[in-house]
Simulated scan of single mutants.
Amino acid sequence: MINETIKKAIQDNSDEMIDIRRKLHSEPELSWEEYNTSEFVYNYLTGLGIDCWKAEPTGVIGTFKGGNSGKTVALRADMDALSVHELNEDLPFRSAQAGKMHACGHDAHTAMLLAAAKALVAVKEQLPGSVRFIFQPAEEVATGAKAMVSQGAVDGVDDVFGIHIWSQMPTHKVACRPGPSFASADIFKVHFKGQGGHGAMPQDCIDAAIIASSFVMNVQSVVSRTIDPQQPAVVTVGKMTVGTRFNVIAENAELEGTVRCFDPDIRDHIEKQLKIYAEHTAAVYGGTAHVEYIRGTQAVINGAESAELVQQVAVEAFGEGSVYDEKPTMGGEDFSFYLDEVPGSFALVGSGNAGKDTEWAHHHGKFNIDEDAMATGAELYAQYAWAYLTK
């Protein structure tokens, strides 16, 4: 199942792959602003002889046909950075853009998939089928994958595979469970309206701060008292804006939060309950409520056949101990939109190494990766494509 030419190509080009990652890390671009990154990717792929086209405004899609006819497998990497200020002051390739940082590993994903593309080109004539390379913008705002799908990224594709570097797992470990992997990730906004007035005369007012506070305290019972405790779900209020002055009773309060779960029926239930709780809480105090519920990513549900193939590839490429049993995360990933269209799976590749200080949480200003993990990720991309097409 493992192609030794691919393995050697990844090893031979690992220094170049790391150089690319460091270049991208020092030049981060936010969601829908990945113009320089996508231009670099496009030029690199075309330099390998891979036919490419640009998705609007900043995506890149490449495809090559192997020496014989067969199925088509797609490999996906995301390219965008975050509006996070980098705190790795001593890093030689730290972000050159204040307030922008690759704090989630997308620089590594892009470099790994470019290395995988180069390795697969080396065995192109032996491949029965085609490989599609998807370099996606705007994963961090959960809109990039849907845009890529609408522009034909997975048209004609039989299977899709993606990877995320994971600082919570030891370097070189690979996790890919069949079933739920990442949760659906939604946003809700609640506007409470009361009646403002003088802080010394509460009897003449309806305090929106009290309404909002009561909602925040009580809404957790949606999870704890209306959902089966064996079904994971999270409701988090992350932002609350209320009031204008210390001696003025607030007329308006704005809340924003997120909902995470794996089951679509529970997702529907929570959306309904948030509206009920908000409206009834406001009514108790004489105010009103308006709830906006914005559906973000779907849950990432790995197909059993694909996930099992990932595990087989990992064992044969990296050894029996390489497969790691990482539990599903309540984090969100818009890779789900590809899985809505075609079968596939999404793997995690560990990059956590205490000795290299790379165990910081994703989205933290100190986030960094153990670059030794990149060879594992790049080879997993390429060997998965080889295994899928030749199995």
Rank of each mutant, 00 (worst) to 15 (best):
D19H: 11
Q230P: 00
F335W: 11
K146P: 00
N43D: 12
N353I: 14
A145N: 00
V235G: 03
H280D: 09
C104Q: 00
F93D: 02
M1S: 13
Y324D: 07
F135Q: 01
A74H: 07
M17G: 10
K118G: 06
T236F: 06
Y381L: 09
A387H: 08
A387N: 10
M101Q: 04
V349T: 07
G332H: 04
L255D: 12
G156E: 03
T258H: 12
G350D: 06
K71D: 08
S150D: 08
M169H: 09
P328K: 13
F192M: 12
V342A: 14
L380P: 13
T143L: 13
A9I: 05
Q273G: 02
S31P: 02
D357W: 05
R267P: 01
L45H: 07
K100Y: 09
P264L: 06
T110D: 01
W32T: 03
E29H: 01
D159E: 14
C52G: 04
A278Y: 14
A81R: 00
V123C: 08
P137Q: 01
V291I: 11
N36W: 01
Q168F: 01
T358K: 12
A183L: 09
F93R: 01
Y384R: 05
S351G: 14
Q195E: 13
G296A: 09
Q126N: 10
L45T: 03
S306F: 13
W360Q: 14
V73E: 02
L114N: 05
R22E: 03
G319F: 10
T244G: 15
E39S: 09
E27Q: 11
G287E: 12
T288M: 11
A307W: 04
A299H: 04
G194H: 13
S14W: 07
G105C: 00
G70T: 08
I206K: 15
H269E: 15
G331Q: 09
A145G: 10
L113Q: 12
Q311W: 10
G152E: 05
D90K: 11
D372F: 10
E305C: 08
L255C: 14
E4P: 00
Y388T: 08
A209Y: 11
V223M: 11
R225D: 07
E4H: 12
S26K: 02
G62W: 04
S184F: 02
K327H: 10
Y42F: 06
E341Y: 04
K65A: 08
R295Q: 13
A304V: 11
G194N: 14
A153R: 03
V84K: 06
S69D: 08
E316I: 07
S306M: 11
H25F: 11
G331V: 05
K124H: 05
K124I: 02
D228F: 08
D19R: 14
E39Q: 10
I165W: 00
E371C: 09
T46S: 14
Q298I: 00
C205E: 06
M17C: 15
D90A: 06
G377V: 10
A250M: 13
V284S: 15
Q136A: 02
A299W: 05
